[in-house]
Design a protein around this nucleic acid. Structure first.
Lengths: 201, 201
DNA sequence: GAATTATTTGACCGTCCGGTTAACTGGTGA
DNA sequence: TCACCAGTTAACCGGACGGTCAAATAATTC
């Protein structure tokens, strides 16, 4: 009943894009509405507040990226290849954004979490949830690699924590230096952390 | 000539504290003035803009912390002990802030850089500079450790990059999860990355 | 085609924002 | 002692902020 609309989806896409490339505090509700081509009244018809929109935008972004993650981390893929492919995805994604906007934009979840962890409990919890979803792919890959004797780690979960932290750190560093080239260190750092058995390049 | 004042220093301290525990965008010039007990007119007598104050506040914070860094990274200290002591400093500092404010607050430079890298060139450049100053301590320690055969790394500078990224990443993760306990991984992650020869615990 | 209801519209609200101004104050150096 | 000037004060600015609202509209269901 009633009419249908794609305004909600347009708002989610506009919000993710704008917040990702600047920051939560640096983007106004008006900015998002203009980009989405939607009136402010419609915004508040679909979302109770700016921070609720942000939470919904992160969820929508994840749902959009999930098939690609499932493909990269497919159990059809050898465990270390999953991680290497993922590094390549990050590098390519950031390089593309860098060409588009002139900036390394980093991880949208980590950016929001870092900015708002002490200020907005809902966004803090959501970004933690999003990062945890990514973590579970890494953990599974590392556990598989461990079982297959491809790496030298005692505790797969602990190693996965170390790996995901390093990825986050490298992304921040690349963002601050605005140099996507730093991301070529992603794979070697990861492999070193895992004590991966070297294979001929 | 003219009168003297400590308003500038009070503004620097208030700004650092407020921005560190919330965010640049989440703190207003009025907030900073109230905390410093200074009128807004005085603010703009000392600083041309909010972002200039932030840049000055980071510089002042570094100058304040520098003696402690020099002590930890003294060449009197064995290279790996420098790194271990530094991990302990970070852990203690973050735990203290967590008790004070109820939040893991992370690295002030990385927070600001992450929030503003795409929006404010002066702050981006300053945070990069600050992180680079820290980096040079790590690099020197790792180079010394390498010379003394304490670790297994080929390129000390590359290893230092990896280590500093991991520290940044772990701090972000601890902030997002609001759990200072994660920082106990600082030292093991670092040592694993460096291929440090194990010593009895 | 009428009733229903989700969506759209754009004007509106009070507040807070970063920043400005001009008059005033008081410590310092000569 | 007194002139000078760094520092202080508080009112003020225009515009942007997040959020509200009531009336208008159009798609859907029956």
């Amino acid at each position: 009943m009633g009419r249908t609309s794609d305004a909600r989806e347009k708002l989610l896409a506009a919000a993710l894009d704008l917040i990702w490339t600047s920051s939560y505090g640096g983007v106004s509700v008006d900015d998002i509405c203009v980009r989405a081509g939607v009136n402010k009244g419609s915004f508040y018809h679909f979302f109770p507040s700016k921070s609720d929109l942000a939470v919904a935008a992160y969820e929508a972004h994840w749902q959009e990226k999930r098939p690609a993650m499932d493909a990269v981390f497919s159990s059809q893929n050898p465990p270390l290849d999953r991680l290497i492919d993922w590094c390549r995805c990050i590098q390519e994604g950031q390089t593309e954004k860098h060409q588009q906007y002139g900036f390394v934009v980093g991880c949208p979840y980590a950016n929001a979490g870092s900015e708002l962890a002490t200020q907005d409990p809902k966004i803090r919890a959501k970004t933690q949830e999003m990062l945890d979803r990514g973590f579970r792919y890494i953990e599974a890959a590392i556990a598989d690699a461990q079982r297959q004797g491809l790496i030298d780690v005692a505790d797969a979960t602990a190693a996965a924590k170390q790996v995901s932290s390093c990825v986050l750190g490298l992304l921040i560093q690349a963002k601050i230096e605005n140099d996507p080239g730093l991301l070529s260190e992603l794979e070697p750092t990861m492999m070193r952390l895992l004590g991966a058995k070297m294979v001929a390049a």
